[in-house]
């Protein structure tokens, strides 16, 4: 069990900046009313952020060039999307996705 002071100060600094990013909006929103345009803007955050996080996993960045495709993730996404449409159950989607990925890796596809 070692803990270097370099790592400790890094974690304190990075922890603090992350905490502020998380809580300051709560403090500000509690005290100030957001304008309608901002509320409308923020109402698109869930779908845009989830899409961006999802797509990031389907692409392989090549800085300065067009991204490549992560075929394993893309292939495993298909049964996961189908399960989403059929069951609307988050648990089922995750289990089918993980099982599909295990099969894809086992068979050496992608």
């Amino acid at each position: 069990m070692t803990l270097s002071s370099y790592v400790l100060w890094t974690l304190i600094g990075c922890g603090l900046i992350t905490w502020l990013s998380r809580i300051l909006p709560f403090v500000l929103v509690k005290h100030f009313r957001l304008p309608d345009w901002l509320v409308n803007f923020l109402s698109f955050v869930p779908i845009t952020i989830m899409t961006a996080l999802f797509v990031e996993n389907l692409l392989v960045p090549h800085p300065g060039h067009l991204p490549g495709i992560d075929w394993q993730n893309t292939l495993a996404s298909l049964p996961a999307i189908l399960t989403a449409v059929l069951t609307k159950s988050l648990l089922a989607i995750v289990i089918v996705g993980v099982a599909a990925m295990a099969v894809i890796r086992l068979m050496g596809w992608g």
């Binding site: 109402s43 869930p46 779908i47 989830m50 899409t51 996080l53 999802f54 996993n57 993730n73 495993a76 996404s77 996961a80 999307i81 989403a84 449409v85 609307k88 159950s89 988050l90 989607i93 995750v94 089918v96 996705g97 993980v98 099982a99 599909a100 990925m101 295990a102 099969v103 894809i104 890796r105």
Partner: peptide, 27 residues
Amino acid sequence: KAFGFDFALVAMFIGLLYLQIIGDRQK
């Protein structure tokens, strides 16, 4: 990676995105 657990995160984003799209009655 052999067991595919790393894909749980991606599957979750898929599920949450889908549920968000069909659940939001405002849009």
